[in-house]
Each structure stands twice: as C-alpha cells, then as structure tokens.
Amino acid sequence: MAALLRSTDQSLKEFGRNVTISEHPLARLMYYFDCICAVMDVDKMEYEGIDSLRKYHEFETLEEDDIDNLVKLCYELSPKALENAIFQDDGMCEDSNNNFFELKTVRNNFLVSESVLIGGIEMDVKKVMTYKICWLMKNWVRPMDYFAARLIRISSGQTSLPGYGNGGFEKHVVQEESSVPGKKPSKKKGKLFGSMK
C-alpha cells in the first residue's frame, strides 16, 4: 500500500536533531545506516549487531567483520532500493540536510510505500526521510566509493585482506545541519560541511 507526500501539507510532523559526525567515510556510512534504521524496520533482517553499526560516534571501535556487514547492508539499503521511503527534496529539508516525517501524516506528492522488499525480506516503512543531494553524497555516495574495493572483496567471497583495517581514522569533526530521529532540527545558520579528503 502506498501514500503520497505533498511538500505543502501543513499536517506533516517532522522530527530530528542536529548531530556532529566525523568526516571519516566509516562514520558517515554508519550515520547513513542509523538514519535508514529510523526509516525502515531493519529488525526483520535478523542481524544481531545492528545497534553497534548505528553508533557512528564510536566508528573507530568497529571490528572488521562488522565493517563488512555495514558495507553489505548499506549496499542493500541503497537510496535506489529505498526510493519509495526516502526522497530528495530540498524544500522539505528546510535548514537541515535531511529531515524525517511520520508516515501517518504523509499525503500527496511522493509515492510512499508502507513496505519495501530488500534481499527477499519485506521490511515495513516506519517513517519518511527527505534529503538534499549534498547529504546523500557525504553519507552514502562517497563512503560507498571509499569502500568499493571492500565491497568487491565481500561479493567475491574473499576473507579479510591486509590494508582493510580501521586504523588511521581522521579526527576531523564538523557540526552540520543534518538530523536524526529525536527533536526537530534548529533553524540556526552558519554551520558548514567539512571537505571530504
């Protein structure tokens, strides 16, 4: 079953909070996964370590097998696969780079599914997320590009190789107007993205 999202609908209930995220691609991908966990009922995937994959502030502590699982999950939970649950819409993001909305308040412009089929598993859509292209680039496109060699290794069934460790993480952290489930993002201006190196 599907609903539609109209960006001018005043009854939409939005929520989220500002977060600080490291610029490291692993932290960024964990943040993407955390946002998707707010949108989708990922518990149906029956992966015991989901909570640890969401703790983007603790990205340096993630084990190699967990990084592999994160990369696989984020590949399966790609923006394309979730195109009926997450939407690129700058206007609905307002001052943030992404925003969340209650599914039950969503009507009219975007086709929103109540469930999505991922890897043969039907997963319920719990909330709707809108994002700006810059959010998607920083939190999924660039991190997945960074982990491309790892994804190839995983898909070929190889075991861990030297050079895939999680050492040498940069400590560069920036404050940005992205949101995660919680309170509504603030309307403050002047927070900038750091550059991905």
Rank of each mutant, 00 (worst) to 15 (best):
M40I: 09
N139F: 02
N69L: 13
D124H: 10
K80T: 11
T61C: 11
W135G: 00
E63H: 10
Q158T: 10
E94H: 12
Y146I: 00
W135E: 02
E170P: 07
E94D: 14
K80R: 12
I50F: 06
K44G: 15
M144A: 01
T159A: 14
Y75T: 12
E60T: 11
Q158N: 12
E114L: 07
E64L: 15
I121V: 15
L53D: 03
I86Q: 01
I152F: 08
V39F: 01
K44D: 12
F87R: 02
D51H: 13
I152N: 08
K138S: 13
P143E: 00
F110W: 12
M30A: 04
E46L: 15
K104C: 11
L73K: 09
D68E: 14
V125G: 01
S78Q: 04
G157H: 03
K127V: 09
Y56K: 05
M45D: 07
K127D: 09
V71F: 04
E58T: 12
E170M: 08
E60W: 10
D43Q: 13
S113L: 06
L161V: 08
P162W: 06
C74G: 06
R153P: 00
A38R: 07
V71M: 05
G168H: 05
V128C: 05
D34F: 08
G168M: 04
S52P: 04
Y47C: 15
L82Q: 00
N139I: 00
D68F: 13
L111D: 12
K55L: 13
C93N: 05
M40T: 02
Y31P: 01
G163V: 05
Y146D: 02
K44E: 14
D34M: 09
C93L: 06
Q158H: 13
K132R: 09
Y131G: 00
F169I: 08
E64M: 14
Y31G: 04
P79K: 01
G167E: 14
A81K: 03
C93T: 06
K127A: 12
W140G: 00
D95F: 13
S96A: 13
C93I: 04
M30C: 04
E170V: 08
G157L: 03
D41Q: 07
T105S: 12
K55Q: 13
G119E: 14
K132W: 03
P79F: 00
E46M: 15
I133N: 12
P162M: 07
T61F: 11
S155Q: 14
I118D: 05
G167H: 13
L82C: 03
R150Y: 04
K126T: 05
E76K: 15
D66H: 10
Q88K: 09
K104E: 15
N166R: 10
E83T: 08
V42T: 09
E94W: 10
F147D: 00
S155M: 12
M30F: 03
N166L: 06
I50A: 08
M129F: 02
M137R: 13
S115K: 11
K138T: 10
L29P: 01
E76M: 15
V42P: 00
V141K: 07
